[in-house]
Design a protein around this nucleic acid. Structure first.
Lengths: 140, 140
DNA sequence: ATCTTTGCAAACTTTTTGCACCAAT
DNA sequence: ATTGGTGCAAAAAGTTTGCAAAGAT
């Protein structure tokens, strides 16, 4: 069940000179189908449903390739786990340290801070690569 | 060379019913002497200069005790490494993903964002536990 | 035929933990 | 004498890597 979007991603890979394998097709399908944020492990589990011998390291390598292509972005959610999503949906994330809940934030929440730091210190924050961490309403 | 500040910290530990050992004294001394942010590993190396057999796990356990006491805070600086500092100097951090440079930020940089998220989503960000990540002036 | 990609196992990094011994109170 | 602290080695958890075999082009 390769969707239109998955086909487009695969086409991009092919155009970039990357070979299309069963494992890659399966990873891309799983990634497009998962409309939340998934860890590499999650993704490997989903892929395993149809392709039991696709190894976790292959998932990592495919995600890497997709990331180099700009199609995929990964975000670090506090302690340890990184999650992946398609780059086209741009937003920030807040993660509850207590329960792990993830809130998607409008992508303008940090523009003022970003501008202030750029002006005052020359530092350019990248608010997509690491999530904001704290406590959600339920865990305060 | 136990300083006044170190003595105060040790006193706090003692008052909390924690035993004062040579290892703990050494860790506290090293922590007070280091006026930058140090990793547990850094700290272990500094401690080793005078107390070669203090184990890294003891450093972690001591930092843990100090953190429970509220004397020490740790901050995650992007990929993997956590750093420790005395809690009394409160500020935020921005870390360059390229060169690792750390910029200390005034502690009010995020109050607006914090207030906005609290109001809009009920989420309370904890801007001390994780640093902001990005690129410093030199690495852009 | 070539040269990339794969599966596997093993290394890696940072932090935590189980355990028997040791030491502060 | 207690009880908590220590060193050590080993386990976590998440990710990366070296390698020989398999597969896409």
């Amino acid at each position: 069940m390769t969707t239109e979007q998955a086909a487009a991603v695969l086409g991009g890979l092919r155009a970039a000179g990357v070979r299309i394998t069963a494992a890659r097709r399966a990873v891309v399908d799983a990634l497009v189908a998962a409309d939340e944020h998934v860890t590499a492990d999650d993704l490997a589990a989903r892929v395993a449903a149809s392709h039991p011998d696709v190894h976790l390291s292959t998932v990592y390598r495919t995600l890497d390739a997709l990331e180099r292509l700009g199609v995929v972005t990964h975000v670090h959610f506090g302690h340890g786990r990184a999650v992946y999503h398609l780059s086209d949906r741009l937003h920030h994330h807040a993660v509850c340290e207590e329960c792990g809940a993830v809130i998607e934030l409008p992508s303008d929440v940090l523009v003022d801070v970003q501008a202030r730091l750029r002006r005052d210190t020359g530092f350019e924050i990248d608010p997509h690569h690491f999530a904001l961490v704290g406590r959600c309403r339920a865990c305060i």
